[in-house]
């Protein structure tokens, strides 16, 4: 499906640039990394602020705890690695030391989603949102593109408490502009429509916009919400979508269980039940392959959104 032409940039670069933006403004920002400086794009920060940069080696649990300690005495630590390890290996530290205290620690979840590509399933984190969203006190951000990731990093600094920011490895379409506002907890309306709503996160927002265009040709008006904040969820925007469009399809580069779709369904079911469906990884591990090939194979494309929108509309009263 084609039509819109987007500029392509990586969300990880948005993370790296956002940290530099913060570092220039705030002396208390420190960055910790676990032997993947360039691939998490924190070399930008390291080059300018070497005294505020800590190489922790391949020890994610220690890195999470060290970040907690730094936060107790006036620093605002951002730690980063691939989310498979930063969340997976360090979960206990995220839950007890960082979440339960709570500590003012920001966690960067790099190389998230299936679009990591050739590295295969071990490195394609598809469970991070389910895990982190379940820990009390955490804010969970999944920005859609380069500019929004950069803004999410800056916004995370202003939140007094733990924040998880998810981003990916590959180029993704730039669907927001540098001057678009970014407000934590407020869904961004990317396209309006009254027949159905697609609530998407991360790079699936661009697929939802392509689906919007394709459906428009058939006279189906799809609303597209960029749910860049998975926690706290913008319940008002979801209520409105349910009431005004009467059908919802979620789209995420994440497992079906526990991610954005689950979060939205909880709100919809409790308040204003409407037919729903979910574009997500269907309880499988990922696989090696080219990112585009994997998005096709695992059903994370505009065409998959279109199909689910149509079948959901059939169930609409």
């Amino acid at each position: 499906m084609s039509g819109r032409i987007f500029e392509q940039r990586t969300t990880r670069e948005g993370w790296g640039r956002g940290l530099v933006d913060l570092g220039q403004k705030h002396d208390d920002v420190v960055v910790l990394v676990s032997d993947n400086t360039t691939s998490t794009q924190v070399h930008f920060f390291e080059e300018i602020f070497p005294d505020r940069f800590f190489q922790m080696g391949i020890s994610e649990q220690n890195m999470a705890g060290v970040a907690a300690g730094l936060s107790r005495f006036g620093k605002v630590p951002f730690y980063v690695t691939y989310s498979a390890f930063g969340v997976g290996r360090a979960l206990d530290q995220l839950r007890v030391t960082i979440g339960y205290t709570p500590c003012n620690v920001k966690v960067g979840g790099g190389h998230s989603g299936i679009s990591v590509g050739p590295d295969g399933a071990t490195h394609q984190m598809l469970e991070d949102i389910a895990i982190v969203r379940a820990i009390p006190n955490f804010t969970v951000l999944v920005p859609a593109d380069f500019d929004q990731t950069r803004k999410a990093v800056v916004a995370a600094y202003s939140i007094d408490g733990p924040v998880y920011i998810r981003f990916g490895r590959e180029n993704v379409p730039c669907v927001t502009g540098p001057n678009d506002p970014f407000e934590v907890g407020k869904a961004q309306m990317m396209a309006d429509g009254n027949d159905c709503t697609c609530i998407a996160m991360g790079q699936m927002v661009s697929e939802a916009l392509l689906a919007h265009d394709a459906l428009a040709e058939e006279g189906i008006r799809l609303r597209v919400l960029n749910m860049h904040t998975v926690k706290p969820l913008d319940e008002e925007a979801i209520h409105k979508a349910a009431r005004e469009t009467g059908a919802i399809v979620t789209a995420e580069e994440h497992q079906l269980y526990g991610g954005l779709g689950s979060a939205v369904a909880q709100v919809v079911a409790a308040n204003y039940p409407v037919p729903m469906d979910y574009v997500a990884i269907q309880d499988h591990f990922g696989a090696s392959g080219q990112p585009d090939e994997l998005l096709d194979a695992f059903g994370l494309r505009a065409v998959d959104i279109v199909m689910k929108v149509k079948s959901t509309l059939e169930r609409k009263a």
Partner: peptide, 10 residues
Amino acid sequence: LSVAIGVALA
């Protein structure tokens, strides 16, 4: 111990 290291580094 990791937390203490963070404090010591700060």
